[in-house]
Each structure stands twice: as C-alpha cells, then as structure tokens.
C-alpha cells in the first residue's frame, strides 16, 4: 500500500466535521495521493465510504480499532 501523504485526526468530532475536514484536505492533495483519516464518530463507518463513493475517490483500506476507525483514501484522478 502506498504511504499516506498526510494524516487527519478527527478524534472527538461529530458529523459533519470529519467529512468536511477530510474533503478540505482531499481537495488539496494531488491525484493518487493517499489521506489517512482517523475518526471516532461511530457514524463514520457509514459516512466515510459514502464520502469516497460520492466524490469518486478510492477507499484503499479501512480498519476498525478500539473506539477508532482509520480510513486510507486515495484521491481520484481529475
């Protein structure tokens, strides 16, 4: 797996902030770069895959840890 270009920790933040902040970071990445996104909002398990689907990016990997979900999102080519 490609190394993440950047990491965003949204621990303690509720919807819509993880999605809002992740999209701001994704907008600045180059196509093909990966964002490592850390969430604690339980809604993120459904929200982040939906964010990726709607934006057209790619969910490389998702990992559930204790009280934490980590997602690796690859920005789509324009």
């Amino acid at each position: 797996m490609e190394t993440a270009a950047t990491t965003l920790d949204t621990s303690g933040l509720l919807c819509p902030l993880p999605v809002y902040k992740a999209s701001l970071v994704l907008n600045k990445l180059d196509p093909g770069q990966v964002l490592e996104l850390i969430c604690t909002d339980p809604g993120s398990l459904a929200d982040i895959p939906a964010l990726v689907r709607q934006r057209g990016d790619r969910l490389v990997k998702a990992e559930e840890r204790e009280h934490q979900q980590v997602f690796w999102i690859e920005k789509a080519a324009l």
């Binding site: 809002y20 999209s23 964010l51 709607q54 934006r55």
Partner: peptide, 12 residues
C-alpha cells in the same frame, strides 16, 4: 446547515 455543508463536501 449541516446537510448543505456535507453536500458541498461531497462535491455537490
């Protein structure tokens, strides 16, 4: 406000 901000974050 939450829905609109989210939609815009999705690229809508």
């Amino acid at each position: 406000l939450i829905l609109a901000t989210t939609a815009a974050s999705l690229g809508w």
